[in-house]
Design a protein around this nucleic acid. Structure first.
Lengths: 190, 190
DNA sequence: TAGCTTTTCTAGCGTCGCTAGATCTGAAGG
DNA sequence: CCTTCAGATCTAGCGACGCTAGAAAAGCTA
């Protein structure tokens, strides 16, 4: 009994170590640098052990990292929003969102650029995504059909990627956030 | 002399065939499916021949495809803009932009998601990019410091990626374009 | 035709993700 | 305490990847 519990515990801990190692390495050097051999070395086991934790291999490891990313990003945005409304809300959430994407580029990449089938098959994923979408909708006060939120999300997503790709002047980040808040604070003129 | 010209011609044509094969295969099955062995088979030569055309290997082939993509996307947006102004201009350009990203996903990916160094070392690249940026600025009538254009571009970029990733309802594409036009047609309230 | 240059191929290196089958380990039963 | 046996772990290897050195072939010049 106690032995079984301890075994389960060690299994869980090792799974945790795999995910942490993958995330850390990926954020530092990109997903291409995350190899099964390196991961196995890091956790002190051989390659096949990884496949007992993640039968789907590297793709499932990336998926697991992405799932945790959705939860974390939603939490950060929710915290940034707090009870704010209007422009201050948009600016706070935008900064939180862009900061996360900047600090965890590989996690963000796994969240949004993995092949679809792999990413959204899991039933929990949709719930996590809906929660994130809801925070963004609340941020801009979207009471419509969600189109404005989609646009807002798209802008955040695009800006974060283009910033990291070096296509936008980093020193203008604050201006973009201000501009974003100005354009999404109120419904557009029809 | 005539021999040299013909040789150059054959070299150019083979280069063309490599790029076409890479682009076609990538748009169909993703860049991972574009292997040097497959490319060599397709053009009827062996692997090392690719490296006489593109000493940098696969990365440089992707870069070449990306460079042509910048030119093409700018041309398409320019054509869509024509003499239109205001909302009609924004809607037309947005549709052209999103259509391109949809029809040539791998080209678009190469354009915006390759490692920076590889992508923007070439001096022509910046000129092409500036031309594209100028079209977008003209589309929304940006006479400021370019921040609004960066935002507009970011929105287009983000929407195109999220649409392809299956994160936005495809049937709402038109609504997003309308919403985009409404929010970017006029300067925001300050 | 002979010699030289350029083009093209053969063969192979090291690395990748992944897996079958052997080996080891540790708990349960005699 | 020893044996048994299942699960955990490792060894070894497969096929595919990007890429390259050096041999062979082809084409130009004299």
């Amino acid at each position: 009994m106690a032995e079984q519990a301890s075994r389960q515990q060690r299994t869980d801990e090792r799974r945790r170590r795999i995910l942490d190692a993958a995330r850390e390495r990926a954020d530092a050097d990109g997903w291409a640098a995350v190899t099964t051999r390196h991961l196995a070395d890091t956790i002190g086991y051989t390659q096949p052990v990884l496949y007992s934790h993640f039968p789907g291999g590297k793709a499932k490891i990336m998926l697991a990292v992405a799932l945790e990313g959705f939860v974390e990003l939603t939490r950060l945005c929710r915290a940034a929003l707090g009870r704010k409304r209007g422009r201050r809300a948009i600016e706070a959430v935008a900064v939180a969102y862009l900061d996360f994407a900047n600090e965890h580029p590989a996690v963000y990449e796994a969240m949004f650029q993995l092949p679809i089938e792999a990413r959204f098959a899991h039933e929990d994923t949709d719930a996590d995504l809906r929660a994130g979408f809801a925070v963004l909708a609340e941020t801009i006060g979207d009471d419509g059909d969600g189109t404005a939120t989609e646009l807002f999300w798209g802008a955040l997503h695009g800006i974060s990627l283009l910033e990291r790709a070096g296509r936008m002047r980093p020193e203008h980040r604050a201006r973009r956030v201000t501009e974003l808040a100005a354009r999404f604070a109120a419904p557009p003129s029809r």
